[in-house]
Design a protein around this nucleic acid. Structure first.
Length: 189
DNA sequence: TATGAGATCAACT
DNA sequence: GTTGATCTCATAC
């Protein structure tokens, strides 16, 4: 297999609907811990379910910045969720990373998550950030430099799309993308 | 297996 | 004061 190529900011400077499916199968590492992305959701500022819908605020400021950066926010007071900012500065669109298949740093992930079930380590946005150790402190970091590492997928894969999860607005928009048949999805398509 | 409630907090109205 | 891009555990069937 050829050495995978790194994803740079150019990769994210496209429509969220182009970037989101391209992220499926890509490898995400944070401090050397991570794996292959198997599930994402696209959020655009014209989308009522997006945080950026309704304008810029202190919380979502990163979404309004240039592409290729991480937007981290707290969900339900408990979890952290991580997004990759896309398109161009001011477009306020991003891709939510929902699940990945753990391949590197299994021990660190198990320790942080307090469980051994590999399938449950990263199968959900809150679980994923906990396993990788991503928090508010990492909001606004560039995705093409440490501690982040992103590699393009190699080879051909089957991508499926469907309605999004865990939201109450625009639920029916088919902007959730996943790796067909993966055992690490937060929920089957 | 399925359903429901609790945890816990920053941003927003 | 309310809400939410969630997860876990308990209880019910």
């Amino acid at each position: 297999m050829a050495k995978p190529s790194r994803l740079h900011k150019q990769f994210f400077a496209r429509s969220v609907h182009a970037v989101a499916p391209d992220l499926i199968g890509a490898t995400l590492l944070f401090n050397g811990v991570g794996g292959a992305i198997v599930e994402v959701e696209a959020y655009h500022h014209t989308d009522p379910a997006a945080h950026s819908y309704g304008g810029q605020t202190a919380r979502n400021a990163v979404m309004f910045g240039p592409p290729g950066y991480a937007y981290v926010y707290r969900s339900y007071g408990i979890h952290w969720c991580v997004n990759f900012v896309c398109e161009r500065e001011g477009s306020a669109s991003a891709v939510l990373i929902r699940a990945l298949e753990p391949t590197q740093g299994l021990a660190a992930m198990r320790r942080r998550r307090g469980m051994r079930e590999e399938r449950l380590l990263c199968s959900g946005p809150g679980r994923l950030t906990q396993a990788l150790g991503i928090t508010q402190a990492h909001n606004g970091l560039a995705l093409d430099r440490a501690p982040f590492e992103l590699f393009a997928r190699t080879g051909k894969i089957d991508i499926v799309s469907g309605g999004r999860i865990g939201i109450t607005k625009a639920v029916d928009l088919p902007w959730r993308y996943g790796l067909s048949g993966s055992r690490h999805l937060s929920k089957a398509f």
